[in-house]
Design a protein around this nucleic acid. Structure first.
Lengths: 211, 211
DNA sequence: CCAAGAAGTGAAGTAGAATTCATTCCTTGA
DNA sequence: TCAAGGAATGAATTCTACTTCACTTCTTGG
């Protein structure tokens, strides 16, 4: 027995792992999953391509971890809003606003997580993430409907519509190129207001004909 | 000169072309662009992979044609609704309902055409298509806002939100993917109503900020 | 029926990325 | 200091598609 992991070594290994993850995160944020190839990640992390496979079973697994990390952060923030004070309407508005604002700040990260196709594993992780986001919205919807703030509606479908609405509205601006900071605020506000209106009772009755 | 295309032959060739396109369409509808590889299309069309390149310059060109075909059909139907009679609200409802109903008949086709990224050429075609859909909704929105039926809002962003909402609810991971005909009607109705509510003035005035 | 030439084939060529693995470099404990 | 064995390397391999092309089959007009 001439070799055993020392605490120092253990730390160094953990450092490697973290550096690989950080590099992957950075590359995705900068250029989307497209640009985040194993060779590029390795080079950015200052390790060899082969080493990545000592820490992660596959490329997919690495990026599932990257995605989960970001989603976890996102969910924490949104959960705080959802469980926080205020009317359902205000919280819904705040949640959408918060999400879209951060999405616009790290464009490609959001794009990657929302729309960019990837390995089957990553896709599955993305679906889990979307479900989690949907669940948060469902919680607000349930309360809002119970409180009479929102119109009667199917919360599953509405939650899907909300996630879809802000996703689509974001994908345009964050996919191809960045939008100016000025338009950005407008975009954030418009999306949030769209979502709030969408769940609220309409002013004029649904039946109403052109007047 | 011992060979010249006869009318019969001409017809046969056109048939091949059509069969290739049909196979591509079917594969996309079933499994998205992912599943629609040249080899698979060839096999589904009953021709060799090589033959496809006699009819289409590249994979991208083939799928641009597939996309354009579907979009053209869709646009025609929606245009008729948009330019038809009725209040803006009714027409918006009808347009979303019409689109979602048909989308449910071929789920992934809609998704692939609206959301799934692909070859650069296909992406460009997709962006054109999206713009066309967006323009149709924008036309209704403009009229509805002018007529006082809808709330004041940014029509570009709203149009994107509408497209995103029904897309996600139809084929996204949150919405139900395979449902019975009974739920289907519910889904169609819920989505359409969501969209109409989303553009209409809310019953209770909306605060700009939680105060 | 035959030869010219198009239609059609599908295996080989390519290309871009992921993954492996023989080899080298390090760390550790005796 | 040394050797055992893990850590790290990166070129070679594998994988997965698209695309080409040398060859075969079919159609046509004489």
């Amino acid at each position: 027995m001439a070799y055993r992991r020392s605490a120092l070594m253990e730390e160094r290994l953990a450092g490697n792992r973290e550096r690989i993850l950080a590099a992957a995160r950075r590359l995705v944020a900068e250029g989307g999953l497209r640009e985040a190839q194993i060779a590029a990640v390795a080079s950015a992390a200052g390790v060899s391509a082969g080493l990545i496979y000592r820490y992660f079973k596959s490329k997919g697994e690495l990026f599932v971890e990257v995605l989960d990390f970001a989603v976890k952060h996102e969910i924490e923030i949104l959960t705080a809003i959802v469980k926080g004070p205020g009317s359902a309407r205000d919280r819904l508005h705040a949640a959408v606003e918060s999400f879209t604002r951060r999405a616009l700040e790290g464009p490609n990260l959001a794009y990657a997580f929302i729309a960019e196709p990837a390995e089957a594993e990553v896709d599955r992780a993305r679906i889990r993430a979307r479900k989690k986001f949907g669940d948060l919205f469902k919680a607000i919807l349930k309360e809002g409907i119970a409180a009479g703030e929102f119109a009667q509606q199917d919360i599953d479908i509405t939650a899907a519509c909300i996630v879809g609405a802000y996703t689509e509205a974001l994908v345009g601006p964050i996919g191809p190129s960045r939008t100016g900071a000025k338009d950005r605020e407008k975009l954030i506000t418009s999306i949030s207001e769209f979502c709030v209106r969408a769940v609220s009772e309409s002013a004029s009755p649904q039946r109403k004909r052109a007047s």
